[in-house]
Write a protein that binds this DNA or RNA. Structure first.
Lengths: 244, 244
DNA sequence: GCGATAATTAAGTCTATACATAATACCGAT
DNA sequence: ATCGGTATTATGTATAGACTTAATTATCGC
């Protein structure tokens, strides 16, 4: 049977064999459907998915062409700290360092994206792996959007875990950077001399309303953020290139 | 008309209004099709796309439920250096520091994922923005897979640009980290005292064969890698919630 | 009660068809 | 030659129906 998966595999194969180079036009859906002996719907699904992956570019009337991939996308999964540590077989530790209700000043208002004066909850926590500092968390929560957070003490459960369970978000922004440690980071994490920190900053919104801003800093030595893309050619065995 | 987009929007809306919480089962495709007055195919497409986004989880017979999003995915686009710099309105500069053909020793063999003894091209280049060092590139190219690279001098065009134009890849791995600068990095980039480097390592394969390994290091102060997720609720105006 | 087997269910996929829409190509009038 | 409208084209989307497949639930024999 000709499946949309087998068509995806064949097209990928054609691109990788350089039958079609970057920028080339590939045959239209009707022709492909005839060639492969299936319906246009099936071809359409295959090509749409390849377009979603960024491998093809499609425009009405203009046709479908192999994308000129000028950028390489990398998708990193940022896990809950606890899961990340426990999955590595290490013991998870958590300490709430500081908890304060404030109102947004100029700096925090711009960080979390709320008007000045908005009530905020400011939390600072330390996450440990086998007793060693692993991540310092500095978080602002918009109490106007999440009043329920006011009633949580965050002594036992980290804000990250609480938020993930409680709150859906519709938009999210991440910033990754390398920085020399701040005084607080130097105090709380046992950094080597000259050891930088790897910083993940995240802001989330629900509709127009900002929910939270968090700065997660990790000791630079030993921390890596990894992204693996699936092999596009994986599992072609059954599907593609059955005869040729 | 009931479109698959409008259904996506309605389901998202239901999740965000907490009609369905994380882990909850949502009605099956047939019921939704009847509720919305459209065919099952249309519902199917909407739910599939939400599942692809990681918002829903679907299993045959078990039904469709709201995903317990334990991790947050961030997709970063890593542009060609030249484009990144010129798009910021700055002048791009490029210097080839070093070019050598070698054979893989233990260290480089494991970096690029080839057997020891494989012929390699080792390139080191510096990319500048308005005359200031922006990125130091240290690259290994597998000449067994890409013999054409032997004939390129890389004096005028950087290896990154050449590779993107010439070579498709099927798998790709990225590692991001913060590190104290190496001697070479200190020599070539004008780093402040204590300034770390932000390191992007990338390995690419075509099928089973490794193509290249590259280490891209940026001065830590001023370099940020950003990932923005589209707002899931964007553009609901026309589509969703027409009456209620 | 247990374990194997059959029935049921919900998603997964393919098809043929129809119409919508964006973008290009063409052509005629000024 | 340029402008503007019209025909053409390839993709985008919706539909009804049929069949497949994975996974749960029920059932039967022991």
């Amino acid at each position: 049977m000709v499946t949309y998966r087998s068509i995806k595999a064949k097209i990928l194969d054609g691109i990788i064999r350089r039958d079609w180079a970057a920028g080339d036009l590939i045959p239209n859906e009707e022709d492909l459907a005839r060639d492969y002996g299936c319906s246009r719907s099936t071809v359409n699904r295959a090509l749409q998915e390849l377009a979603d992956l960024g491998i093809l570019e499609r425009r009405r009337k203009a046709g479908t062409r192999v994308a000129l991939r000028q950028t390489r996308g990398a998708t990193v999964q940022i896990p809950i700290v606890r899961a990340e540590i426990e999955q590595g077989g290490r013991r998870y530790g958590y300490v709430l360092l500081d908890r304060a209700e404030t109102r947004a000043d100029a700096a925090s208002a711009s960080l979390i994206d709320v008007p000045r004066g908005t009530p905020l909850l400011h939390l600072r926590c330390l996450h440990l792996a086998d007793g060693t500092p692993w991540q310092l968390e500095d978080r602002l929560i918009n109490l106007a959007a999440l009043p329920a957070a006011r009633a949580v003490d965050f002594e036992a459960v980290g804000p990250n875990e609480w938020l993930v369970m409680q709150v859906p978000y519709s938009r999210c922004e991440h910033i990754f950077s390398a920085a020399p440690p701040s005084d607080a980071e130097r105090d709380h994490m046992r950094l080597q001399p000259d050891e930088p920190v790897f910083v993940i900053e995240r802001r989330t919104w629900l509709g127009p309303q900002a929910l939270t801003h968090v700065r997660l800093s990790h000791p630079g030595l030993g921390f890596r953020m990894v992204s693996r893309e699936d092999d596009l050619l994986a599992g072609r065995g059954e599907d593609a290139d059955p005869g040729a």
